[in-house]
Design a protein around this nucleic acid. Sequence first.
DNA 1: GTTAAGATCTGCT
DNA 2: GCAGATCTTAACG
Length: 192
Amino acid sequence: MQFITDFFLRDTAEVARGLLGHYLVRETPEGLIKGIIVETEAYLSSSDPACHASRGKTKRNATMFGLPGRAYVYFIYGNHYCFNVVTGPEGKGEAVLVRAVRPVAGKELMLKYRGNDCPEINLASGPGKLCQAFAIDKSFDGHDLRTKTLYLQQNESAGYTGAVKATPRIGLSVAKEKMLRFIIEGNKYLSR
DNA sequence: GTTAAGATCTGCT
DNA sequence: GCAGATCTTAACG
């Protein structure tokens, strides 16, 4: 079952928390890839210097200011893509970074896209690894996440996957103190 | 035109 | 635990 737009129009931190336990699905010509989201981070537009949108709209972050429920994909550190879901009303500039999933289907394909024989526990345990395993690149920037090839799917048992915990976000040089990272506590597939 | 910093990963010590 | 790889974007001259 798909998410409705209203889900993404709520408070961004609530959306980040609410996505835990649900599915991220990728349909490739070679087969289906599916994972359960176990780690997310919220990026707010106001008073959040860590957010790309905090210093206004630019060519790179324009997607963040677009329609909720779209994908915001950007390239970082010369090597990696990061996958976000745009939240809030159009023009606000907020998003949720999906940092890690637990693989549930298409593990062979994920392994192939990751390009080495990494253990299952590391297939998608981090934003860059997740994009590699799901073959997500810049062509998905602005992609509507209710259409095929890449979408989010509700999981009825999401609320029973474990206790949710808020922690500081990872890898930032500013606003390190904000508790905007959400994890399923104790899950083996977290980035750390 | 030039430069510095970045929502990371991997391999080596 | 730490440094290096690697390159796009945005700010500045």
